[in-house]
Simulated assay, not measured.
Amino acid sequence: MRVGELSRRTGVPVPTIKYYVREGLLPAGELSSPNQARYDGSHVRRLRLVRALVEVGGLSVAAVRDVLEAVGDPGRPVHEVLGAAHDRIAPRAVGPDDAAREAARRQAAELIARRGWRVEEGNPAVRSLADALAAFNRLGHERFSEAALDAYAGAVERIAAADMAYVARKAAREDLVESVVVGTVLGDAVLTSLRRLAQVDASARAHGRDRPAAGE
């Protein structure tokens, strides 16, 4: 297929496709003439993956490039690919390195030890958790006691188990690795949306609302 058909099949504008090729996110098509290239089903699949990571997952082009390089490395263990995806989607450090952050770091480390999670100390998600807890505390919202954190941890353990059960169904390495990355990036978007829907429902039940207001 030519680039116009590739655009129609994926919904990605031609200029964007050419940009992704220049940036190394999409392999170049096979030249059929000096000014024409042909694309195949592998380009459709890759383009849909890139679009999902950028538009739904919210990753930058640079982040997508790094993730795709990890996915395409046949010698890289799947666990390391997942780590590469986490590295690129974890928020950067925010706020001062003060007493609140130090206390939050201890709280995060204690949670990990308490749950028996096999997580390296330098994992970016550990830093992100500590940053979030510190921000809560600076604002005077000390909502995450040990019991509250354990309640959240128990819920996400079940979600992680469901994630791994889905990934385990993939036989080919390419499918397996892609499933890990997609599940990590897009799964966050699904989880956030479900949580917000559940909060709307919980609020309605708590305050006696029988039906949602317009726009909810």
Score class of each variant (00 low, 15 high):
L186C: 14
R115W: 03
Y20T: 06
T10K: 09
R205C: 06
P91R: 08
S7V: 09
G122W: 03
R105D: 10
S60P: 06
A113R: 14
V3E: 07
A172E: 15
D175Y: 07
R105C: 09
G24F: 02
R46S: 05
R48F: 00
A189S: 13
Y20C: 11
L82Y: 05
E121W: 01
V185S: 06
R92Y: 00
V50M: 01
A213K: 10
F144I: 07
I159S: 11
A100W: 08
A161H: 09
R196D: 02
G154W: 04
P74R: 00
A125M: 09
E80F: 01
M164R: 15
R45N: 03
A202M: 07
P96H: 07
T16P: 02
L149V: 01
A52M: 04
M1T: 13
R76K: 12
V61S: 02
S193Q: 14
D131N: 09
Y19S: 11
V3D: 07
Y39N: 09
A189M: 12
A104L: 13
R22K: 12
E55N: 14
S203A: 14
E102I: 10
V50H: 02
A206I: 03
G183A: 09
R209P: 00
G72R: 03
R195P: 10
A206R: 15
V156T: 14
E157H: 01
E5I: 08
V177P: 05
A93F: 06
F136V: 05
A28L: 03
R101A: 06
V81M: 06
R169Y: 02
Q107S: 14
